[in-house]
């Protein structure tokens, strides 16, 4: 089925029957994920959701090229992924600011790796620093920034590098509730103003429903896709403000549905 997507122009990323098996030192094996297939359209915000330990981060890391699937394959723009590169920029949950570089130099880092000329780097960095509202802090060092600001540096740094897909592994998981909420709205406006395809891992249902155009739900142990579909309550529209999402008809049902899925998986793990 996934091969059909290949012919479709608007398909960006295809994960095809991907599986990952870890082998312990004593020779025993454990299947982390089994037979995972889904695809992401261009400019789509795809959320990988599921209980902890379901392997959704492993899937994301395989898309990044930081891990290799044991079985199956992953294609970006029709090409099989081999190792990490600039086309799949990753934002991690833990802060990844380079402490020895100023905010501005952090944002320029990827462009410098890829041979963008100094003047152009400067312009692009200024643009994305403006988008994440850090222009005032461009000459500050990361140790002077709050957690939310550090995460904004990481997002600007990834965006400025113009990757084909942005991969985010629970990017707001380490932030306090209020900052998290602001960051989600900032993220919504960023994807609206830039042409970006995003694959984001989270276990926060509200976050998934607010930001996601599509939710791929994973079951636990071994992880595999349990449900995959567009976020229907939004009628293919994007919502910019969190309480607007809550007001839409169908939101509560969508949340209830995912919670039930979550619960069923948690009980399975617990039992």
């Amino acid at each position: 089925m996934a091969t059909n997507f290949n012919k479709n122009d608007s398909v960006k990323l295809v994960v095809e029957n991907a599986g990952k098996t870890y082998t312990h030192n004593n020779g025993s094996t454990i299947d982390a994920i089994v037979d995972v297939s889904f695809s992401v359209q261009r400019n789509e915000y795809c959320v990988l959701l599921g209980p902890s330990g379901c392997g959704k981060s492993t899937v994301l890391r395989m898309v990044a090229g930081l891990e290799t699937p044991t079985t199956g394959r992953i294609l970006l723009d029709g090409k099989i992924i081999e190792g990490p590169d600039r086309h799949r920029g990753m934002v991690f949950q833990n802060y990844t600011s380079f402490d020895w570089l100023t905010v501005n130099k952090n944002v320029e880092y990827g462009m410098k790796c890829n041979g963008v000329a100094a003047r152009e780097r400067e312009q692009i960095a200024a643009h994305f620093l403006d988008i994440v509202q850090l222009t005032k802090f461009k000459d500050a060092y990361p140790s002077q920034l709050s957690g939310g600001m550090k995460q904004r540096v990481a997002i600007a740094r990834t965006l400025a590098n113009k990757p084909s897909v942005i991969l985010m592994d629970e990017p707001f998981g380490a932030l306090d509730a209020e900052t998290r909420w602001n960051m989600q709205e900032l993220m919504a406006s960023i994807i609206e103003s830039t042409d970006t395809t995003v694959v984001m891992v989270t276990h926060d249902i509200e976050e998934a429903l607010f930001l996601g155009d599509r939710i791929v739900f994973f079951s636990g142990h071994p992880g595999t896709v349990m449900e995959d579909g567009p976020v229907e309550y939004k009628n293919r529209q994007r919502v910019m403000i969190k309480e607007e999402a809550l007001d839409l008809p169908g939101y509560i049902e969508a949340e209830r549905h995912i919670m039930a899925l979550m619960r069923s998986q948690r009980q399975e793990i617990g039992g």
Binding site: R86, W100, G110
Partner: peptide, 29 residues
């Protein structure tokens, strides 16, 4: 030196050599 720093650099397009010189070395100095 945190693996996320190295992996971030790799997904930004840095070569192995560049990761060594622009991430690992300054991070450990």
């Amino acid at each position: 030196v945190r693996i996320e720093l190295i992996e971030t650099s790799l997904t930004l397009g840095a070569s192995q050599k560049r990761v060594l010189w622009t991430v690992i070395v300054p991070a450990v100095l």
